[in-house]
Nucleic acid binder design. Sequence first.
DNA 1: TCAAGTTGTCTATGATAATAGACAACTTGA
DNA 2: TCAAGTTGTCTATTATCATAGACAACTTGA
Lengths: 241, 241
Amino acid sequence: MSMQESSGVALWRQVADGIERGIADGRFAAGEKLPGEMEIAETYRVNRHTVRRALAALAERGLVRAERGSGTYVEAQRLAYPLRSRTRFSEIVGAGGHEPRGQLIDAGSDVANREIARELGLKIGAPLIRIEAVRLADRTPICVSTTWLSAERFPDAGSVFADVRSMTKLLGHYGVKDYHRASTRITAAIVDATDAARLDLPLGRPVLVVDATDVDMLDQPLVTKRSRFAAERVEFLVENG
Amino acid sequence: MSMQESSGVALWRQVADGIERGIADGRFAAGEKLPGEMEIAETYRVNRHTVRRALAALAERGLVRAERGSGTYVEAQRLAYPLRSRTRFSEIVGAGGHEPRGQLIDAGSDVANREIARELGLKIGAPLIRIEAVRLADRTPICVSTTWLSAERFPDAGSVFADVRSMTKLLGHYGVKDYHRASTRITAAIVDATDAARLDLPLGRPVLVVDATDVDMLDQPLVTKRSRFAAERVEFLVENG
DNA sequence: TCAAGTTGTCTATGATAATAGACAACTTGA
DNA sequence: TCAAGTTGTCTATTATCATAGACAACTTGA
């Protein structure tokens, strides 16, 4: 009926872009409920089904989340996570106006395989402390990470971490005043069942897998770790230049 | 067959945008022949009909022109026409590397209606000279304009303009050394049959309608005019700041 | 418990997008 | 003049877009 001048951009896409703009410029705040599908349909003068298509596209990208019977909500916006030489979870989260939290999941001993041995400058089979932890911004889990340290250099690191709940403080406890990132490699994968539960993430969602090694001021390797970030909750920023 | 992930942007639109980008960044120069429809279809992996839809959209906007049996050509790019206080057709066109031309179509007398009287600071019914002229860049008509001057202050302005073919020179002939734009209003319309012929423009095309009044250094109004620019040949630039 | 309001799913219909093939109409250069 | 290559037009088919209505499933607050 309503003669639409064909612009080559589907109506549902125009609606989706409009809502996304609303989220981006803060007209719809994170966690807030969007107007009902009927109301959106009226404001854009389109059918409710067209609105649903738009919302589905946004949900697919993790920008909104629909709850049957209740409404559609704006997902917390992605945490901007700059990748610099000096990378501190607590500083990054704090800078975003959120409260950084850490929670020990598990700590135990391990032995170095070839990769870890190379990263830490140890021999294969050298004794390690392995720490599994989840890190949160406010109450939202951001990433789970498995951290390996030399058991010889950092004895009892597991129980120390359980106390201080911060890698920076743990290293400080052993006399390390400062450290920085030596290498960072990023890949992506589908979350496994264990991490899904820890991250409070539905199965099948993507995670960013980051392998990183931190070194002290003399370039001596301190810790190496593999972190899995909920892709829909973070956004890595690479400094260009 | 080929499963296209639906982005909400029609294929023909994507092709059109791609070609337009090619024109904008000079990969396809003005006047140059585009690749054949078949070749474009292959590079974008779409059907020839989809390419034709894209080219039709670009032709609609005057960016390209198809010639049966020969090819599709990039239209001359739009003349950048800055709107400043000091606006001289000849200078603007000359700055673009084109040769400015003017041609008198008609000159006669008229009487001031309320609008013109107000613009020129005359009484309603005051005698006027009316000049119809077309202005060109090289051989391409850019605009037709109807200019009104006070018949008392500029007697015989019509025949003077036929001689000098330039508004700046005409005013100079009456002792006006300098002038500038007091007001500019812009609207758009569909070209009428008379202007279409004068602008060498197909019927149904849009024109930019500019109403402007020039004043001398003492802010005394000199001329007021209504110009119709072929929209596909110019691009007005408004200085911000 | 219930009514109102919300999202989810189903069927159905017409318009538009995209593909495919064939041939006409025209231009260009040999 | 002719062959090759170009754009223009026609028919046809399938998938997607958009609308419409009805009802189920669920949440919320009174």
